[in-house]
Structures are given as structure tokens and as C-alpha cells.
Simulated assay, not measured.
Amino acid sequence: MKCPNCQGRNLGRIGNEQYYCWTCYLELSIEDGKMNINQIEEDGSLSSLNDIFYQSGS
């Protein structure tokens, strides 16, 4: 598995179907066969980056 942002393989597993990229500091999770990409904010909350990586067809 590679990070969709940096294409690196420096991923750590942090939970069931949850990974962390140590190169670009993104959290990746897989739900229903789709990868969700989140940025970890300073307060520990997650901000979705899916809109950047997945363009809608409309």
C-alpha cells in the first residue's frame, strides 16, 4: 500500500484499517472499500482531505 499523497511506503498501522503516513503526516482509513484521507490538526481533530483527492463527476 502506498500513500496517495507522497506515493511513499512509509506507512504505520494505527488501528483496524487505519494507517499513518510518516512522510506527509496524513491519516488514511479504509471504509466500505474506499480510502478516506485526513489531516491531523493541532488540537488532535481530523480534517477530511477527500475533496482534494477525489473529484466528483459533476
Score class of each variant (00 low, 15 high):
M1C: 07
M1A: 12
M1N: 13
K2M: 08
K2A: 05
K2D: 07
C3E: 03
C3W: 02
C3F: 07
P4S: 11
N5P: 01
N5F: 11
N5L: 03
C6H: 04
C6R: 03
C6S: 04
Q7C: 09
G8I: 09
G8S: 14
R9K: 15
N10L: 03
N10Y: 08
L11D: 04
L11T: 09
L11P: 10
G12F: 05
G12K: 05
G12N: 06
R13L: 08
R13P: 06
R13A: 10
R13K: 14
I14T: 15
I14K: 06
I14W: 01
I14N: 04
G15F: 11
N16D: 15
N16Q: 15
E17D: 11
E17S: 11
E17N: 12
Q18M: 13
Q18R: 10
Y19G: 04
Y19K: 08
Y19I: 10
Y19T: 07
Y19N: 05
Y19C: 03
Y19P: 06
Y20D: 00
Y20T: 04
W22V: 07
W22N: 15
W22T: 14
T23N: 05
T23R: 00
T23K: 00
T23H: 01
T23Y: 00
C24K: 02
Y25Q: 06
Y25H: 13
Y25K: 07
L26I: 07
L26N: 04
L26K: 12
L26W: 08
E27A: 04
L28A: 03
L28W: 08
L28V: 08
S29H: 06
S29K: 07
I30Q: 10
I30S: 11
E31V: 07
E31M: 04
D32V: 12
D32H: 15
D32N: 15
G33W: 14
G33A: 07
G33Q: 08
K34M: 13
K34I: 15
M35C: 04
M35Y: 10
N36K: 14
N36V: 01
N36S: 13
N36C: 09
N36L: 14
I37F: 09
I37D: 05
N38C: 06
Q39P: 01
Q39S: 04
Q39M: 05
Q39C: 03
I40V: 14
I40T: 08
E41R: 15
E41K: 15
E42L: 09
E42F: 05
D43Y: 10
D43L: 06
D43A: 11
G44V: 02
G44N: 06
S45I: 02
S45M: 11
S45D: 10
S45T: 15
L46G: 03
L46A: 02
L46S: 00
S47I: 05
S47G: 03
S47L: 09
S48I: 06
S48V: 09
L49P: 01
L49V: 02
N50T: 09
N50A: 15
D51E: 12
D51N: 10
D51F: 12
D51T: 13
D51R: 09
I52G: 01
Y54K: 06
Y54M: 03
Y54G: 05
Q55Y: 12
S56F: 07
S56A: 10
S56H: 12
G57A: 13
S58V: 07
